[in-house]
Amino acid sequence: MKVLTIPVTPFAQNCRVIACDETGKAAIVDPGGDAEKIIALVKQHNLSIEFILLTHGHLDHVGASKLLAKEFGVEIIGPHAEDKFWLDGLPMQAQMFGFAPHDAFLPHRWLDEGDVVALGKLQLQVRHCPGHTPGHVVFYEPASATVLVGDVLFKGSVGRTDFPKGDASQLKHAINTKLFTLDDETKVMSGHGEDTTIGYEKRNNPFMSGRFG
């Protein structure tokens, strides 16, 4: 699996363009903003965009979705339906975070635990990981041992749970049961900051060891 990373929005959110090496078919994961930069990256690498994937409904992860869906003529897929209230509230989110005005939208398809999204020869396994938001999902690609986790897990940290319907205990349970059950060598691609591995976080993450909460 080829992964191209482009930080977008003032929050430096890691938008990922993922592609199947064999077919060249690609998807955009969490296009939070700066649509023109994402379009330029796709054209530079001559990729064929098949759909847009969303891990959760926060504006810095979804802000350019509608524009890019129209640009490439593709569907928006995800997150889990429990995040509908976040997408319905995008105008409020824009005002709250100081973004330009933003209309609400809904995906063409919600995702559930156990779903598999095919991208060329890639099989993206969907795992529902609530806590940061109630409808947060992650995408695990077993052939490359890579998991795109949005804002669930970071290098040395975990997602915030002080937003509406956030739940710290739920987040830790999701990490322990949906992420820490993966092989230690699994590469973790987070929504902010640098990449890490499952093994590193199991050994070192202070929020999961109990040192910080």
Rank of each mutant, 00 (worst) to 15 (best):
D183L: 04
L122H: 09
L4D: 08
I39F: 10
G150Q: 09
L106V: 08
A174S: 15
D151A: 01
T9G: 04
F212T: 00
K43E: 14
A19T: 13
A26G: 15
A81L: 03
P142D: 14
R127Y: 14
G33D: 10
P7G: 04
E36F: 12
P134K: 00
L153C: 09
D34W: 06
K187N: 11
T146F: 04
V188N: 08
A104N: 10
M92D: 10
Q44R: 15
L67D: 14
C15H: 07
S65E: 05
V8H: 05
G33H: 02
S48G: 03
L124T: 00
T177G: 00
K165V: 08
A118P: 03
S169D: 01
D195I: 00
G199W: 14
V116G: 10
K187F: 10
P91H: 08
P10F: 14
T197L: 02
V116F: 01
H45D: 09
V158C: 12
G210E: 14
G166C: 03
F207H: 09
F97N: 04
Q93D: 09
L59Y: 06
T181D: 12
T55S: 15
A69W: 02
I28W: 13
T196W: 13
F99P: 05
N46T: 15
I38N: 07
E113Q: 10
I198A: 12
W86A: 01
L148C: 03
G156I: 03
K70L: 03
V29A: 10
D151G: 01
I76E: 03
W86S: 01
V3G: 06
G98V: 09
Q125D: 07
Q13L: 07
P101I: 07
G32P: 11
K43C: 03
K187S: 15
H58L: 12
C129P: 03
W86Q: 02
V3C: 12
V158W: 07
G114P: 15
I175F: 07
A145T: 12
Q44V: 13
T186N: 00
A12L: 12
V8S: 01
N204R: 07
H192T: 05
A143C: 11
F207V: 00
L4C: 09
G199D: 15
D162N: 05
E22T: 14
L179F: 05
V188H: 10
D151W: 05
